[in-house]
Nucleic acid binder design. Sequence first.
DNA 1: TACGTAACGGCTCATGTGAC
DNA 2: GTCACATGAGCCGTTACGTA
Length: 294
Amino acid sequence: MIDLEWLRSFAAIYRLGTVSSAAGARYLTQPAVSQHLAALEAAIGQSLFVRTSRRMVPTERGKELYSRVAQSLDTLEHVLRRPDGAAPEKPIVRIGSPQEYFYETALPRLAGATCRLWVEFGPTPELLERLERGELDLVIATQRLSTRGIEYGKAADERFVLVGSPEKMRSGGRRPRPANLDQVERWLGGLDWISYGVELPIIRRFWQEVFHRRPEIRPVLVIPSLHAILKAVELGYGVSLLPDYLCRGAVSAGRLRELWKPPMPVANELWLACRKTDLHRDEILRLRERLGAG
DNA sequence: TACGTAACGGCTCATGTGAC
DNA sequence: GTCACATGAGCCGTTACGTA
């Protein structure tokens, strides 16, 4: 007979990745949780995790079991937590995202969601790692990493727009003919640039895709925030590349100007990632639909 | 019915083991 | 050396059972 406590410990190990952290989360000691898992594996007759030196990696049987019990255990946890007569507690979905995309695009789409949302920001590789570890439920990713057990759905395309302030452009010297890439490169290389980082992320990619070489640019301003870059461009610090969803409003309002359109647009795909074992969860499916990856 | 006692289950603490 | 899991020893609460 399988004890419910064994399953609760199993789910905690699955989500948190180690027996020790699962023990902490369950207010038990590590040996207690270790014994729960050993008893569950003995009852089932199969290993549910591969013991590596640093992590407990679920086996196929472990993944299958988790997908079958996770929703029921969550429901049970909610029922046990809520006081008698209280309305059923909404499930929690933990979302990881790039800050600017979430603020500009995801947040308006999530208005009226029927679950509670806990949002965290960070770089995509880190967020995907945390998704795999069970610390997040849904990640808006700027790239697809080959991670087993993660399902990706296309959420959106973002096009990078080369922008500057109208005042800066008036004093920026004579503009080259748009079709002459050598002239355009020399012209752009002579402008003041604002970059997200010293390694010139976005700018480097733009340069390589358009001019097929590395940019020789020393940015006048480095700010790891796209919103701050937008403001800095408006204030005339220099020019930069921004996602279309972020600068569209400022361009329409005349605060920014698109300086030049490359022959082929430089774009990025945005993905919505979740664990395959969570694909049965209603709240996950609904959020995927809202965010465009249904 | 009340009490004493043994058995059992589940926990913690301490420690061993293996991987990095 | 550090980190994480497994294991043995011992403690404690619960339960079953016998006895007054």
